[in-house]
């Protein structure tokens, strides 16, 4: 009962002091708003970069060329051997016989059709191929070597140099994004912490009086804890709205892509909720901890 009464009063007092120290509350809130909007931007950007790179990685295919003279039995053996290699996405393996390829090319253009029609089945200069995808793009080099080592495989193509640089660039971009997000969160924590420190500094007299009339340290801390939590949560409200509506608007106005169809944006529903939740947690968490840290300073004798 006593505990409930104390909690009740602490929450009431925290609301009261937010409104009675309105200008200071506004200061810490606007600081939270600005920094959290930055955090939100960085998080959205990093999400998008990650999803883009994942998409591109998924689309990357490896083409395995089989020796012209390979028989059907050979093809089957090769297929089984490919399946046995780690890092190969088994479902993605597609076999295209030279006939298939001939037909595909003929469909594509008249010129090809004319040229290819002059060859009989035996003379067909094309090679049968396996088209497949890998599970982890980082190990693609080793996988390509294993594929090449299979008997009667003449060539393995995956755009070697381009892919290698792409992997490196994506890795760097991803790391930079992560660093920016983490750095921004730390900056936010600092800024909010400092603003709250200033607001509490102006109330050290109040804290001192509480101590003198025999209020226990825990009970002194409680209203400040709730106040920090509330200010942080309220400060994260606007960034959350900006994230939800701003990103959805951006996505729709750009048609879900950047510049061309090559780079697709992540769909709003897939990221705005988790981002919003994170903003709320960061805002209220940092507010609460900052507030507690600032009060603790005045609770020592």
């Amino acid at each position: 009962m006593k505990l409930i009464r104390i909690l009740n009063r602490s929450i009431r007092d925290s609301f009261k002091s937010i409104f009675r120290n309105f200008s200071l509350s506004l200061a810490s809130m606007s600081c939270t708003i600005i920094t959290l909007i930055l955090v939100s931007l960085a998080m959205l950007a990093s999400y998008n970069v990650t999803s883009m790179t994942e998409k591109i990685e998924k689309d990357l295919t490896v083409v395995v060329f089989v020796d012209k003279n390979a028989t059907y039995e050979d093809i089957n053996i090769i297929k089984n051997q490919i399946k046995n290699i780690d890092n190969i996405n088994e479902e993605s393996i597609i076999y295209r016989s030279k006939e298939d390829i001939k037909n595909m090319m003929s469909d594509e253009s008249e010129a090809f059709k004319n040229i290819l029609s002059s060859y009989t089945e035996e003379e067909n200069p094309l090679q049968s191929t396996f088209v497949l995808k890998v599970d982890d793009i980082r190990d693609i080099k080793e996988t390509a070597v294993s594929l090449k080592n299979i008997d009667k495989v003449t060539l393995v193509k995956y755009g070697e140099t381009m892919v290698d640089t792409m992997i490196n660039v994506f890795d760097i971009v991803r790391k930079i994004c992560l660093i920016i997000v983490v750095a921004l969160i730390i900056v936010t924590a600092f800024l909010i912490n400092n603003t709250i420190k200033i607001t509490i500094f102006s109330r050290r007299n109040e804290i001192n009086i509480m101590r003198l009339v025999g209020t226990s340290n825990t009970v002194i801390k409680l209203p400040f804890l709730f106040e920090g939590l509330l200010l942080g949560a309220m400060g994260s409200l606007i960034p959350i709205l900006v994230t939800m509506f701003g990103y959805t608007y951006l996505y729709e106005s750009m048609g879900g892509v950047v510049f061309s169809n090559l780079v697709e944006l992540a769909t709003p529903s897939s990221i705005i909720y988790s981002t919003s939740l994170l903003l709320l947690i960061i805002g209220s968490g940092v507010g609460m901890i900052g507030s507690l840290r600032a009060v603790r300073k005045y609770l020592k004798i």
Partner: peptide, 23 residues
């Protein structure tokens, strides 16, 4: 330090500058 409040609850303190909470 954390137990000081128990002593203070048994002591009333009157100050020269009153130390009232203005709000």
């Amino acid at each position: 330090n954390s137990r000081v409040y128990k002593l203070r609850r048994k002591i009333g303190i009157v100050f020269q500058d009153f130390k009232l909470l203005p709000k």
